[in-house]
Design a protein around this nucleic acid. Structure first.
Length: 440
RNA sequence: GCGACCGUAGCUCAGCUGGUUAGAGCGCCGGUUUGUGGUACCGGAGGUCGGGGGUUCGAACCCCCUCGGUCGCCCCA
């Protein structure tokens, strides 16, 4: 290995960013690919959104007083003196595009996207300053069936990722605007009576975000949360009916859920349905997918009143649940092409090039993968190939007759049909190599 | 923003209450052996002990500052 150049300090990675590699990167890709498949199944349209927006897009939609806006955004002035912000979430930007790009003509519009988000927070397990989310939104649909479809899709995604076990859907309603405001007022009144006995955090929350006191972890607060006013007592008949249709829709679709009366949303724009898929396997960052209805958002951005629902899911949290070195995300067999001697290098390269050029199936996936190296031959290279976890090694050796020149060795011990499959693939070899020797 | 723990070769770590040239395994490079269901052996390169300051005859080890990591609080997906 080469030495580092002295006296030139290597710049460090930014705190809270990640260089994702190896099994983690495979798990990440598996999550994204699964999401893409499910999103197409439900006919959500793919959108690509800018990574930065005018700061007002977020400050208006999330609320100036929220922690995200007041202390977690990466905001800066560009060279024109305009205040811009690296997106801390997807919804606000999509809502902005809905208004400014005339997407209203497609309403009700189902869109999905994924990519990096930025929040200046203290890094910890499952939380980074640059993190990645999957996102799905239904815009322009006031019907509870939209909430149901979104939740059914989320449920199917988690099942297809193989992580549905141990993840529970917690569901709540915040009511319509009037219900929510009445409940909020009642909560403030109730907690204010006990203000002195609450935790310092909750005394602060009392002013800024009283709903949040309900899911406080502090035992001093928990004493009071049990008897706090319930949203159910403040729901209008319409809001009650709406929530009833969501739950019956979920039951009809066979999605398990539990009522979580203290589940609230941190951001101001949420109404009605609020939900989180929660696991107990990720420590403090247990929410793996969360969202709700945000009927008030479009107006906050100066657009027409437009009902909408959506959710987002943390890709690295999903990847951690999927993870594990042992998981094989892709069963496609891998062949190593190994020249037995330096003189067979070109021949080996020729064979590898041919196999790669004929590998593509009509569905654009490959039947097999080909591993090669840039140097080495024979024994050493075979050892290296095994460390790369190839399924079989095709040795290219010197020999008079073409059938003597190729030798297939099965590395992983598959037999019978599996071995036949490997041989069948090599039947696609060019002219001289119509047969080859090998062992199973 | 607050708290706890941690920071020794590319990786995972050892280094006794501060005491001579800082170690192991894996990996890497070279070689010998072995014709291939993750060979065996020999040799080699590679470390400002995160960085800076201090205490001491002497610091990887003690103290302070700083940077970074991990896990909580907060916030949130």
């Amino acid at each position: 290995m080469s030495q580092q150049t002295p006296n030139i300090p290597t710049p460090q990675a930014i705190r809270g960013t990640q260089d994702i590699f190896g099994a983690d990167a495979e798990a990440f890709a598996f999550v994204v690919e699964t999401f893409e498949r499910v999103r197409k199944l439900y006919r959500f349209r793919r959108v690509e959104m800018p990574v930065f927006e005018k700061t007002a897009v977020f400050s208006r939609s999330l609320g100036e007083t929220t922690d995200v806006v007041s202390k977690e955004m990466y905001s800066f002035e560009d060279r024109g003196g305009e205040s811009l912000t690296l997106r801390p979430e997807f919804t606000a930007g999509i809502a902005r595009a809905f208004i400014t790009d005339g997407w209203q003509q497609y309403a009700p519009l189902k869109v999905a996207t994924h990519g990096p988000l930025f929040r200046y927070e203290r890094p910890q397990k499952g939380r980074y300053r640059q993190f990645h989310q999957l996102d799905a939104e239904v815009i322009g649909a006031a019907e509870p069936q939209a909430d149901v479809e979104l939740l059914v899709m989320a449920d199917q995604l988690l099942k297809e990722l193989g992580i549905a076990d141990g993840v529970t859907l917690q569901l709540n309603t915040l009511g319509d605007g009037a219900s929510r405001d009445a409940w909020r007022a009642a909560l403030i009144e109730y907690f204010r009576a006990h203000a002195a006995e609450l935790s310092e955090d909750s005394q602060d929350r009392l002013e800024r975000n009283p709903l949040r006191i309900l899911d406080s972890k502090d035992p001093r607060d928990k004493v009071f949360t049990g008897n706090a006013p319930k949203i159910d007592d403040y729901l209008s008949a319409e809001a009650q009916d709406f929530f009833g249709k969501v739950t019956s829709g979920l039951d009809a679709a066979g999605v398990d859920w539990t009522r979580a009366p203290t589940l609230v949303r941190g951001l101001d724009y949420y109404r009605h349905t609020a939900f989180e898929f929660v696991t107990d396997r990720l420590g403090a960052q247990g929410t793996v997918l969360g969202g709700g209805r945000y009927d008030g958002l479009m107006e906050a951005l100066g657009g027409p009143a437009t009902p909408a629902v959506g959710w987002a899911a943390g890709i690295e949290r999903l990847a951690m649940l999927v993870g594990g070195e042992s998981v094989n995300f892709d069963p496609t067999p891998v062949f190593a092409i190994v020249p037995d001697s330096p003189s067979m290098r070109d021949e080996a390269d020729r064979i590898a090039a041919h196999l790669r050029s004929v590998s593509t199936r009509p569905d654009r996936n490959s039947d097999y993968y080909i591993w090669t190296s840039f140097k080495g031959q024979g024994k050493k290279l075979a050892e290296k190939a095994k460390k790369e976890k190839v399924d079989a090694i095709l040795f290219v050796r010197e020999g008079e007759k073409p059938e003597d020149r190729l030798h297939l060795t099965n590395v992983k011990g598959s037999q019978g049909d599996a071995m036949d499959d490997l041989f069948n693939i090599l039947a696609r070899l060019p002219a001289p190599y119509t047969s080859l020797s090998g062992e199973g």
